[in-house]
């Protein structure tokens, strides 16, 4: 589904990613862990098309297409979804409107008819229950006045409605208490499917107790320095990142 080869990315003159390789197949859940400043968020931003990053070398192929060639909205319509580390408040645009517009844009892109308003409402209300959210959040402006936990749930709610092929979770667990984390994780787990892949970026092993990854990678100094099964996350939890960085050096 996603194939990243030798990816080099700079911000200004500063290289952040320095030859990153990553292969994600449909149905898999990958976790990327690493110390602060390793380039985890840069990776999620580059994949979703945020401006301010210069790709100096390497390729990113997503479902046979050159992902880096596409505008952020085109990537979204192609099924790439980014759950933001810091979801943005958009005053004046209602949450439910944005979700409906996004879903219809995706359906249109696939050559499907627009979703009927009543069907959409049924779908949304169903997902709202799954994420244990209050329906009133649907009618509020996007993320405006939401608490940190509500914002993160709202991101997963959007994922649940848009049904992306590649779902990038950028530190979705950060700042959540354990109850909220369980709810968010249940939401994510309900989305796991054979035709969908996940790239979870996290700083904490705790999230992986609730969302079991297939493969864990350690990102340090702009590269993936170690990959392994879920047990790698536990090892990192016990020993810290230092030993991996040393091994790689």
């Amino acid at each position: 589904m996603l194939s990243i080869e030798n990816l080099h990315v700079s911000v200004g003159d500063k290289p952040i990613l320095k030859g990153l390789n990553l292969q994600i197949n449909a149905g898999e859940v990958h976790a990327i862990m690493g110390p602060n400043g390793a380039g985890k968020s840069t990776l999620s931003h580059v994949l979703s098309g945020k401006s301010g990053y210069t790709v100096t070398a390497g390729t990113v192929i997503y479902q046979g297409k050159d992902l880096l060639d596409l505008e952020p909205d085109e990537r979204a319509r192609e099924g790439v979804f980014l759950a933001f580390q810091y979801p943005v408040e958009v005053p004046g645009v209602s949450n439910i409107y944005l979700m409906k517009a996004a879903l219809n844009a995706i359906r249109k892109h696939k050559g499907l008819p627009e979703v009927d308003a009543m069907d959409f409402l049924t779908l949304v209300k169903d997902k709202v229950k799954l994420l244990e959210m209050d329906e009133k959040f649907l009618y509020r402006s996007v993320n405006e006045g939401f608490s940190g936990g509500e914002k993160k749930r709202n991101e997963i709610l959007q994922a649940a409605i848009l049904e992306p092929s590649l779902c990038i979770l950028d530190e979705t667990d950060s700042g959540l208490d354990i109850d909220a984390l369980k709810v968010v994780a249940a939401g994510v787990n309900s989305l796991r499917a054979d035709d969908r892949a996940f790239l979870m970026i996290t700083h904490y092993q705790r999230m992986l107790d609730y969302i079991k990854p297939d493969i864990v990678h350690v990102l340090a100094n702009g590269k993936i320095v170690k990959s392994g099964g879920p047990e790698l996350a536990l090892e990192l939890e016990a020993k810290g990142y230092h030993w991996v960085e040393e091994q790689a050096a």
Binding site: P72, D73, F81, V88, V90, L98, M99, A102, A105, L162
Partner: peptide, 13 residues
């Protein structure tokens, strides 16, 4: 940031 957020939700720039 807001423009990018909306773009990431399929809205063109």
């Amino acid at each position: 940031q807001s423009v990018f957020y909306l773009q990431s939700r399929c809205v063109d720039k």
